[in-house]
Amino acid sequence: MSAMNIFDIFLPIAHMDINILLIIAFGGVVGFLSGLVGVGGGFLITPLLIFVGVPPLVAVATGSAQIVGTSASGSYAHWRLGNVDMRMAFMLLVGSWSGGAVGVHVAQILEAGGHFGTIVTFLYVGLLGVVGASMLLESLSALRGTKKAKTTPASKNNDDGWMNKLPLQMDFPVSGLRLSLLVPVVIGFGVGILTSLMGVGGGFIMVPVMIYLLRMPTKVVVGTSLFQLLFTTAEVSILQAGVNHAVDPFLALVLVLGSALGTQWGTKLGAKLPGEQLRLILALVVVAVAVKMLFGILIRPEDVYSLALAR
């Protein structure tokens, strides 16, 4: 074998050769960004895997398995510090486990018809476009010194909103809240769908929802969101392996190792660098990935036919 191939490994489930250094680098870069800025980064792993030719369903399924590895230790730490609202997490999980189960079967049906890749691309272009654009605007306005963002949550202070009129009201003592259990179940359901169709943890949606919509105390937001995210991705990972045979163990393992190292490095560097510039960098990366994905479906493919092993 030639020297160029010594880092190639064969992925047993994706059924392809891949350069192991490339995957470590993906894990490392995404881990680095998440250490730097404090976001999960699952929404970058899946598109990167798709770019290098991993079948979309394997990329999505392996993405969720990878998040199980990267969020386990953080969840445990927050749980030990008592930063998890267990009742809230449980209600969210009731929803997200149902959403995950539905999503995995939807993925199976879409894949059988050959449409899963298309749907994933559209979901990602939409999600990354919106997330990236809002991050970009936020960090640009922050860099200019106009702190508009800080005034928004206070002005939304409408305690007697529609949420209090819903049935099945329930106390959440740790968060000091009383709200209908339908709210976390429905939110969880949406997150479960996202995890199963996109291979993301959904922290970037969960955290703002908890802060602005549920108005949970900031102290328990990160812990509770990480805790539910860990068990949602775990459920989805088991289902993706069981139903769709799509979790690639080598890929997931290498990603977790790469991202663990990247996160360490990112956290150290992040403490030294100015936060707003970092957010801008991440926003640009997210927008770039969205644009690349969009171009992927706008440009005529080199070959309109493609052949793969039938699943």
Binding site: G69, A241, G242
Partner: peptide, 28 residues
């Protein structure tokens, strides 16, 4: 792994996901 993932996919999913969780804790 290939056989496990395809022939006993549920068992594989369960064991692999649990080991990812343990690996994460260990790395942490």
């Amino acid at each position: 792994l290939f056989n496990a993932a395809n022939q006993s996919s549920w068992y594989f999913g369960l064991v692999f996901t649990a080991s990812m969780m343990l690996l994460g804790l260990f790395l942490g």
